[in-house]
Simulated scan of single mutants.
Amino acid sequence: MSLTGKHILSSDLFDRGELERLFELADVLTPVARGRQVTRILEGAVMASLFFEASTRTRLSCEAAFMRLGGGVTTTTGAEIMSIAKGESLADTSRVVSGYCDLIVMRHPEEAAVHEFAAATNIPVINGGNGAGEHPTQALLDMFALHREFTRTGVTLDGRRIALVGDLRHGRTVHSLMRLVTLYEDLTIVCVAPEPLGMPVHLLELAESRGHTVELSDQPEIGLKDADLVYATRLQTERFADRPMPYSDAFRIDKALVSRVCREDAVIMHPLPRDGRPGSNDLATDLNDDPRLAVFRQTDAGIPMRMALFSSVLGVADAVPDSLRPAAWYRPDYTGPHDAPFYKNIAT
Rank of each mutant, 00 (worst) to 15 (best):
R252W: 05
R68G: 05
M199W: 02
Y231S: 03
G128F: 01
M269T: 01
E43D: 10
R68P: 00
A33D: 10
D102Y: 03
E185G: 00
S323C: 12
A294Y: 00
I253K: 04
S49C: 14
A120S: 11
G336S: 12
R21E: 12
D27A: 11
S55G: 04
D226C: 12
L229W: 01
V96P: 07
P278T: 07
E116V: 13
E221I: 11
L22S: 04
A284V: 07
T56R: 13
R57F: 03
L60R: 04
F117A: 04
D15I: 06
S55L: 04
L293Q: 02
F51E: 03
F52L: 02
D102M: 04
D92N: 15
R152G: 07
D102Q: 09
L29M: 03
A112V: 07
P194T: 09
M178H: 08
F150Y: 09
F66H: 04
D265A: 13
G276Y: 14
P326R: 06
A319W: 10
K255V: 05
H147K: 13
P200V: 13
V230C: 01
G5I: 10
P271E: 02
G302S: 13
L9K: 01
G35H: 14
F51Q: 04
V125K: 05
T153W: 15
F240C: 12
L272I: 06
M269F: 00
D92G: 15
G44A: 07
A163C: 15
D186T: 09
A113S: 12
D249S: 13
L9A: 04
R160I: 01
H175G: 09
M106C: 14
K86I: 15
S217W: 01
K6Q: 12
P271L: 00
G154F: 11
P246I: 08
L283M: 08
A79Q: 13
N288Y: 07
V165A: 13
R277C: 06
P271F: 04
V96Q: 07
T39D: 10
I123R: 15
L293Y: 00
L13S: 14
V165D: 00
M143N: 00
V316P: 00
F251N: 03
L235V: 10
S280P: 06
N127D: 08
R160S: 03
T188P: 00
Q298N: 10
G44I: 03
E53V: 01
F310I: 01
S2E: 10
G133R: 02
V316E: 05
V295C: 08
H212S: 11
G223E: 02
